[in-house]
Design a protein around this nucleic acid. Structure first.
Lengths: 245, 245
DNA sequence: TACGTGGGTTTACGTTGTAAGTCACCGGGC
DNA sequence: GCCCGGTGACTTACAACGTAAACCCACGTA
């Protein structure tokens, strides 16, 4: 940043009407990816185009291609970037300190925080093809996979038990968070507003149970369900651990 | 193109070489949706365009719009269509017969069969926005939601218990099947072949655990994991059931 | 024979991702 | 001072997409 005021030089138009303080340094990959995340966060994945993304960065679409090979690759970068946010999450540890349960609890909550922080981005984590079978969503970063496996084996898990735990853990997180984020109004396109009517009584006469339970079904108990399911998962993992001794 | 020689009457080509009895009558929504599913099955979602889909149906792209409002709507139709396949699945019951455990077992396996039959389509089930909070993926059909809820309440579940079970059930299925289908090579684009090398030893020196466990991680134990997790889920649901008595 | 209409085609437009070429500036050797 | 390569943006161009609108033609019916 820095060169706030420009005296004489050619950037007169910049002086005219731009973002006041920070401003027009050069582009770089990180800034692009961050802008993409912000864009998806508020306009949805469908609304993200190279031209528009260039737009918010004050730049022509083609300029992005100097730093990003293409849109697909950019989306990949987006998913790894949001998972990287967990590295600055104080609650998440990179290796067990107070036992593996605590370790996994923190990790799970970290992922959940990421998902809730970016509900429109999170489905990408699941739908992007993984380039390797060990990079299961939503833990799509070698760093975290390594942390997971190493963490558990250091806590007395056999190799097989660690792998089994990894599978169960990812499967649980993916399912729960995807649904939580979806009900939270996730993937809705760029500009569609949900009509004010939360009501249901349209043509579901033939579905009496749904009709009767509709209200209960609409309630959002994600948080407690998450805790309970996670607790249950940890029990199962404890079992896996003890079985392979 | 296509209808190379036309005799006198236009139906000559039909006589020539079509599906024996039914054949190239007019288009209709069902045929279009079926073609879309087949197309995605073998070329991936990314490859599906209105023009190409018209192509395989021997018709111009715009003709589809007489039966389908647009691509988005078509994709929605695709997901409800594949979930409808379960209705012809003999193993799946539409109401409990030998207890709710059996009922849910059959339902779960039915969904799994659908997912495995259409690995490239299944992610759509998760990523399409649900128009109502009670239509949680992957059970994205009122028919099945009703069957689920009614089935459980008829087996002595309280309303709350049925709803809780529904949430746990969908969340489990979604997570597990999405991952199973993903490792099975799901969303890969239209024409990218996975390179023959299944090996891993590229640049993951800093990840010793991943390196060591890579082989184990690549193994596919989805089937048994599915059974075990499902068993565990049913236990949890039994608990939910008894708690709210 | 005339007609309306259902089912398909043609044409056209705006938007997308991206390959290729171009131009403006800037810092460093003579 | 001058030149000059390189970097970082812009411009142009193209094929493909989704889809609106107009059209066209063969048919069943009157």
């Amino acid at each position: 940043m820095a060169e706030a005021d420009i005296g004489i030089d050619a950037d007169a138009d910049i002086v005219a009407g731009q973002e006041p303080p920070s401003a027009r340094t050069t582009l770089d990959r990180e800034r692009i990816v961050a802008a993409a995340i912000a864009f998806i966060d508020e306009s949805g994945l469908a609304g993200l185009t190279m031209r528009r993304l260039g737009g918010v960065l004050g730049v022509e679409a083609m300029s992005l291609y100097r730093y990003v090979p293409g849109r697909e690759n950019l989306l990949d970068a987006v998913v790894t970037a949001i998972m990287d946010e967990m590295r600055t999450d104080e609650e998440v540890l990179d290796s067990p300190r107070d036992g593996w349960q605590d370790f996994l609890q923190r990790l799970a909550h970290g992922v959940r925080r990421v998902a809730l922080a970016h509900p429109k981005v999170f489905p990408l984590v699941a739908s992007r093809p993984a380039e390797a079978p060990w990079l299961r969503p939503p833990l799509r970063s070698l760093v975290w996979v390594e942390a997971f496996l190493d963490g558990l084996t250091s806590e007395g898990f056999s190799d097989d038990a660690a792998v089994g735990a990894y599978r169960a853990f990812t499967s649980f997180l993916l399912g729960h968070l995807l649904l939580e984020v979806a009900v939270h109004g996730a993937d809705v396109g760029p500009l569609d507003v949900l009509d004010g009517g939360e009501d249901l009584p349209t043509g579901l006469a033939p579905y009496p149970s749904v009709r009767r339970l509709g209200e209960a079904l609409a309630e959002d108990h994600s948080a407690v369900e998450f805790e309970e399911s996670l607790e249950n998962l940890l029990d199962r993992i404890a079992l896996i651990r003890s079985e392979s001794d």
